[in-house]
Structures are given as structure tokens and as C-alpha cells.
Nucleic acid binder design. Sequence first.
RNA 1: GGGGAUGUGGCGGAAUCGGUAGACGCGCCGGCCUUAGGAGCCGGUGCCCGUUACGGGCGUGGGAGUUCAAAUCUCCCCAUCCCCACCA
Length: 818
Amino acid sequence: MHGYDHRAIERKWQERWEKEKLYETSHVPAGKKKYYLLTEFPYPSGNLHIGHWYAFAVPDIFARFQRMRGYHVLYPIGFDAFGLPAENAAIKHGRHPRDWTYDNIARMTAQLKSMGNMFDWSRQVITSDQEFYRWTQWLFLRLFEAGLAYRATELANWCPSCKTVLANEQVKDGACERCGTEVGKREQASWFLRITAYADRLIDDLDNLPWPEEIKESQRNWIGRRRGAELPFALVNEQNPEAPVRTVRAFTTRADTLFGATYLVIAPEHSLVQELMPLVHNKEEVQEYVHAACAMREIDRLAEDREKTGVILRGVAARHPLTGKMLPVLLADYVLAHYGTGVVMGVPAHDARDYLFARGRGLPVVPVVVPERLFREKGARGADEMPLPYTGEGVLINSARYDGMPSQEARRAIVHDAEGQARTTYRLRDWSLSRQRYWGCPIPIVYDPEGTPHAVPDEHLPWTLPEDVDFTPSGKSPLASSKELRERTERLFGKGWKPEVDTFDTFVDSSWYYLRYADPHNAAAFADARLLADWLPVDRYSGGAEHTTMHLLYSRFWHKALYDLKLVPTPEPYIERFNHGQILGPDGKKMSKSRGNVVDPDEHVARVGADAVKLYLAFMGPYHTPANYPFDLGGIAGMRRFLERVVRLSEKQRTDTAPPRDLARLLHQTIRKVTEDIPAFKFNTAISALMVLLNRVDKETVLATQVYETFLRLLAPFAPHLAEELWERCGHTTSIHLQAWPEWDAQLVQEEEVTIVVQIDGKTRATFAAPRGLSREDVVQRAREVPHIASRLEGRAVRTTVVVPDRLVNFVTAPPHT
RNA sequence: GGGGAUGUGGCGGAAUCGGUAGACGCGCCGGCCUUAGGAGCCGGUGCCCGUUACGGGCGUGGGAGUUCAAAUCUCCCCAUCCCCACCA
């Protein structure tokens, strides 16, 4: 094994580090800068997979580096322990979700420890612990008191055979994943948090965050802020058009096209539909359509290539707010109930969806906006040359007294005259918190005999999850089957009081877990205010790209709400954010059990050691780009080879004399490269630089001690066990991980000689070495003297000579092409 | 459908204030060492042509453009991956 017994070395140091509490993080000492590095905590699914290694072992490089640079670093770990899979295990194997979960946590903890990360295990949080979830409940109650929580109904996927609500991922091709029954929708009462009340701040505050632009853009689009207006349309019974039944408001961002509105569309699931039913002549047809539309998934409904379906409400008409004309009213599933007002004015000439819908239904298409240039040339006749639908802005035509007005101006005038009102809407919807599941944090709400909800008072927290439940799906939440919970509620609140039986979405737990790391054992508060002030905000948060618009947005919202309540010290929870990529199977495909391409990290750790596995994961590609990397067995062998060469290097004879100048320069160039690459999460090029240094250092027969020990310190964050072992073998008695990070000598780093590239007409023809800082004239002179260049330039006129100092000379002989 | 990202040798990738494309590693080829080697060491390795040396042409998904100079900037196209509300 060439003297590299990774098993012995890794076991030895993991035990010693734990014994010496090397990674326990104290309070931030006065005068020391803190650094809070966070990675998304894992769900205890059963076994650690290679993706966990990628998520936790690689950022550990940065954590260790920051520590050596003098920061007081917090790099915590915990478990996002509530969730549906535990309950599935209970149903399938008859195990209690708690036992299943905590067994998994025990196994995964051992596996996580085999990484040798600098996790501070004394700060571990587990969201399903009572000591954690009592504070989840406590925080929710503060939001409840602040008016941010409310109860309403929503539609959920429902399997009538399994009698359970389904997650989108449990629905395969419109059928229940478990039993194959066709999935329907069901109205479901739910608690919501008013995330939409924070929509503007969630968008606007992104401007000041140093996040990657693509993550910010994703969040902006997800929130989907649209400024527009609501315009009133009176609905009438066609038999009696003079007496409006009621007025509805249609949301539009294009009020300037109002004169092009030739019909009105209502979302099929809109409550208005049932209200209008008594007036409708074709009731049966309409009901059938509503039923079919409700069964469909939203993304399918919105697919634009799909043929648009709809049905007319016979007997009902809408009065155009400005012309007074009667317009037909239809239902169509391309209109969504929860966006805007769920009512849309149909303007086929200027909206692609309306156009497709109206065509073939005989609904009139009336152009009312023409592009400005066309208008200038042809006036209103320009409309004849305009391809429909035209969705851009322009100048109004066919619009009575608004003719000739530009879109923008017309919008204001029309909204005003039609008695509409400016309104901003968002694609984002309020956050539905309730889950009809057992293994989650109980919602601390009870209902009085009249059914009015009340907060469970703080002194009764934790509002514990009952044990005596039946997991067999019954159509109700599992907690409804608990006698203990029922009795507890009546005992504490009185006869006829009932408990809330839903549990929280697990995104609630993960919306604040990073706060608890600051003060994980506090029994009197979710965290001490002073400690929060010390540690927050999180300096850098790394995780998967799939959380960009959900977890990341939910927790930003939750944090802002707590900030308004003066419970946290900062308006944003995370300063920097990086999304990392995914590890694919060796076949380049997403890992899955069914494909049989799942990589088991334990096997590789046993074979080549944790340091080699970590090094390989860090080397396979840049960490700050969410790309996908296939796991390559040859690559991991290469990392093992690198570490074996390091071990062999350690056996080389050493000297206290200074290294050769070129080696000293390379050493300092390496320090600079590694120091710049680690904080940028470019671990792959940092490791490459270490390899280059090793290749050079290997050529020495006697190695300067100073070079060797500096190399070990540079290696320490990447291969913490081996570096520590070799450091000890140098005779040092304090851990390498407590050493200062090496500094580079800026003077020495500069190459004294540079390579000048000589081009003719932009093509590289030769290179030559020259001292740094040569004058323009001298460089050109030398370039001309290069034999190969001289012969090529013979008899040709040089029109221009481009010189980039210390880099290149380009002789231009050809005429410029135009 | 919407949103986000990514395309460079046989493979992962490197190089982006425009300035030697392919660092480093894997793989492959040749040699040394060895009882043996799936160990180690040395050398080579983008493709095509030429080969005595020096060489020549083409090359960063495809096509156009800007420039003395484009993987990098602009426009159009193609392909792949990820997310889209009771998964975490």
C-alpha cells in the first residue's frame, strides 16, 4: 500500500479530533470575525449516497480553509427529519415512522462522520425532536398572531381508492402511483401563510444580494410580478339585459386593447360559475366541462400546443364597460382561477392564447393596436398588413376617442374611464402549510365548539405529535384517529374543543433550522438574541438548484416575517448562495435503483479512503456551476494515486536550505492560485495547481522542508486526514488544521520571463521568450528577428503591428475585410 | 407550455477586462523496471496531411456577424439537463 494505510489514518484522526473536540464551535470570541457556512441539511432517507458526499464533503474544504485563514467558522449539520417517506415505511412495513426515522439518522450519522468533515456535531438539530419542533410551533404562532396565517380551501390531488391526498410526484400519468386509480381533485381546508404580502420585498431585496444572477432571475420569474389593471364587466341575464346580475373584474396588463375585447372568459373552477348556473341554458354541457377541467393538472392545462377547449354559457352576457356592447361569456381552461381574478377579457387580435381560442369558434377578431411604424405609414389601414395576433404595443385604432393614442397613454386613460383600478398581481400564491400526513410537526391550533380556530398557548408547547394513530389511509389526516390528542384537547380547552389534525409542510421546518444552529440547546427560546446577532446572517449557503424557487423563497419569506417581528437581526437569512451540480451514475444517467447505477460511497471510502473520495468529488468539475457530472471510477483511482505520491514525497530526504528559485516561485504561485480558487468554489483548479506543484517537487532529490510543509498546509483542507498524519510525522504536536494559511510573496510570484506570441494576420506563427516589461519597439524588433517570422515577412508589407505588452505581437499584412 | 442552465479531445474538465485552445486528471500508445502485474518510473497523445529538419491545413454544438485577433462579444438555429406547490 506504499505506506498509505488510509483506514488506520482516518480512524486514528477521527477519534482524536472527536476526543480533543477540535471542531466544536464556541461563541464568537471578541475581535474575531465569524464565518457561517451552511449546506442544506439532509433528509434521513436511509443511506448516505454519493450526492450527500458531494453536498457536504466538498464545502468542508472551504470551511477548513476559512478556519486556517483566521475566521471563527460555524459549519453545522442536522437532519430534516419529518416527511412522507417515513409514513410510507409505516404503511408498508408496519414500522413506526419515528423508529424508521431515528434508525436512519443513526446510520447516516456514522456515515457522515466517516467523511471527517469539521462538522460541529454538538450543535446538531433534528427537526422531529420535540425540542426543535416546539420552536417551529412557537414561531408559527407569532406569525399567526401577526395575521400572516389564515385558513382557506384549496384543490389537492386525491386518490379515491387509497383515500389519500397525493403529492404531484405520486401522480403518474394522471393515475395514483400506488394503485393506478385515476386521480381526482378534492377541496381541502388548509392553513396558508401570506407570502404574497411579501412578494414585493422578496423581489426588490434581491437587488442587494450577491447571489448568482440566474438564481435571482429564477426567483423573480417565479414570483411573477405583473402590473396591470382590473376592469369591471357587468354580467346580465340575456332575457333581461337591463338588470345586471353582478359585476366581475377582469385582470389585464393590456387595458389599451379593451376595444378589441370580443368575449369574456371565466376559469372553469371559479366559484362564479356555480353562482351563474341558474341563468345558464346549457347546464349539463357546462357542468361536464367544469368536471373535466378540474381533473386536469395545471401544467397540462397551460401547455400552449394543446388545443384550447371551452364552453359558452348560454343565457349569460357581459356588458363591455366602454361601448356597452353585449359580449358572449365562456368558460375555458386556459384561464386559471387563482391568477389575477380568474376572469379574462378575450382579445383575439392581440393575445396569442385568445387568438387560438377564438379562431374556429366564430368569435370576432378586432385589431385595435398597430405598431407605431405601420401606423405612421398607413394609419388605421396598417392593421390589414399586420400579422395576427399582434402582441406588441403601438398606436390605437378602432377605439373611438382613443384612436391615435400610444398604448401606454391609452392604458391609463382607459383604466380611468372604464372605472377600472390599477392592480399588481403575482404568479406566486400563498403558501399552503397543511398536510394530511402523520409524520410532521403538529399545527398548534385548536377549534372551539363553534369551529373557530385558536392558538395553542405557548405554555402547552411542544404540542406533541400523538403516538396512538392509525396509519391506514381513511380520507382523514392520521392524527384524527388519535384518542390521546382528542382527549388532551378537551382536557386543556374544554368539552367540544377539537384539535387541528393536519401537520406542517416540511418546508416550515427548513425555513428556520439555520437559526437554531446558533443556539441549539436553548430551552427558553428558539435562540438567544445575542447569539443570533453574533452568527447571522449565514455567510454562504450551498445546496441544490431544485430549491431555488421553493425552500429558498419560503425561508427568505419566513425570515423577513420574523425580522418584522424583531425576532431575527437581519432582513435576509443568507448573504451568498451557490447551487451545486449533481452526480450522475458512471453511465452518465441520473442515479436510480431501477437503473442499477447507484454509487455507494461507503464502498469507495473503504477501498481508497475518505480523503481520496472527497478529493475526487472536488476535482470532477467546478462546484459553483449546477452541472451534472458522471461518477468515474478511473478518476477516483487517479486521486488515490495522487495521495500515494504525497506519501512517497513524505519519505524523501529533507533539508533546511532554501529551494531553487524556480521552485520557490512555483510554490508561491500555487499558494496564490489555491487561495484564490477555494473561496470561488473552484476546487478543481486548486487541486490541479497542487498536482502541478507535486509534479515539480517530485523532481527534487532533497526537498526543502519549508516547501514540503507549506504543501501540506495547502493540502490540509482537501485531504484532512492524510495532511494531519504527515504533519504529525514532521514532528508537530498541534493540529495542522489550527495552523495559519500560507501567504504568498507577490514579488516572487511574478515570472521574470514571459513568452511572447508572434502572429501574422492573427495566426500564431512562433513564440519566443523575453524578459518582462520589454518596450514596444524592442518586442517588435525581436519578433521580426525570429527566423521563421523573418522569412515569412520577406517581401510583404506590414500594414499595422498590434502589440500587447508581455504577451503578443501581431503583424497585419492583409487588407482589412469589410 | 413557462422558467433556469449547459454544449470545448476517447472521457471529466482548463483557458472568458477578446490575445499560444486543450492546464490537471482519467483513458490510450511506446519504453524502463519486474518472477508477475490491474504496482511504480520515463516519454507520447485534438484531428488530417507531410515527414529529413523546420512544417502545413482544420478545429471549442451548427450558421452568420463584429474585430488585427472570437471558446470568449452580437444575432439566428440545434441538442441535452433541471424545476414547476401534500417529494426532500
